[in-house]
């Protein structure tokens, strides 16, 4: 019995951290409700908030789709490559640089006198610089660059976990490469794909730095809006209410993915 108590005591430091975490969430709800529920009703009918909310969801979903479409082939390549560790270093190399600086690298490339525009002009593709920076396209591009490694690693580990003999069996039984991929490889890697997607979706919804630098204060996302409520308007209560809305949006977006993931895992486990 004393040993059991001794072991339970070891949990105390983590318990303190958890208590602190839940205290912050309670504190957030309290400050958003400091003048009652009316603020939420105001925000719900605010045209500007609706636009920002829609843009947040569209940009986050687009980023997740692009990450999945690009990340899957790269993960497949890594999982099948002999030099996997070498390529993996390239994939996670962006983590060597602060996310702020990485995003700034894109500003340098995408600006009206940046490498992309000058190259296109030199090639005669366009006559005048295109406006890329401060558009939703730039936002999706920057967010994809920041979050792609997470997707690649999630899909790759699912691909490495699967039994390669299943693919061989499928090929021996006469299925083509494409059939094998579609009926064996892809279904078995779905948990990794969904896991990566929910991670990217969550992080993209709550991003601030990349939207601020690449989208500017005009094409706002919820994170940017919260930032400007705090640092420009000094409206702490409105910022808190928007943060609560952000929590709910993220939950509503990610919950279905988690549900599907759990179901697929159970089915794969049963099979």
């Amino acid at each position: 019995m004393t040993r059991a108590i001794w072991r339970a005591m070891l949990f105390v430091p983590m318990g303190v951290l958890l208590a602190a975490f839940f205290a912050t969430i309670i504190s957030l709800f309290q400050s958003s409700l400091s003048t009652g529920f009316g603020l939420y009703l105001d925000l719900a009918v605010d045209r500007g908030v609706q636009v920002v909310l829609t843009r947040t969801v569209v940009v986050a979903v687009a980023t997740t789709v692009v990450c999945a479409v690009l990340g899957y082939p790269l993960a497949l390549f890594l999982a099948r490559s002999r030099n996997r560790n070498l390529w993996l270093i390239l994939v996670i190399s962006p983590w060597l640089v602060s996310i702020v600086v990485r995003t700034f690298g894109w500003m340098v490339l995408l600006g009206s006198r940046g490498l992309v525009n000058t190259t296109l002009q030199a090639l005669g593709v366009i006559e005048f610089p295109m406006r890329i920076l401060y558009t939703p396209t730039a936002l999706v591009l920057g967010l994809t660059h920041v979050f792609l490694p997470f997707m690649v690693i999630a899909v790759m580990s699912a691909l490495l976990q699967m039994d390669r003999r299943l693919e061989e069996a499928s090929r021996i039984l006469g299925a083509s490469h494409w059939q094998t991929f579609r009926t064996v490889t892809l279904p078995l890697s779905i948990p990794g794909l969904i896991g990566g997607a929910s991670l990217v979706l969550l992080m993209a919804t709550g991003a601030i730095v990349t939207p601020l630098l690449l989208g500017g204060l005009r094409d706002r996302m919820l994170g940017t809006q919260i930032y400007s409520e705090i640092f420009q308007v000094y409206n702490f209560q409105r910022a808190s209410a928007l943060a609560v809305i952000l929590l709910i949006v993220a939950l509503v977006l990610v919950a279905p993915l988690r549900f599907v993931e759990a179901r697929v895992r159970r089915r794969l486990g049963a099979a």
């Binding site: 957030l28 992080m203 709550g206 991003a207 994170g223 919260i226 952000l246 993220a250 939950l251």
Partner: peptide
Amino acid sequence: LFPHAALGIA
């Protein structure tokens, strides 16, 4: 499971 922008305000 919590977006960072919301955690910042929390």
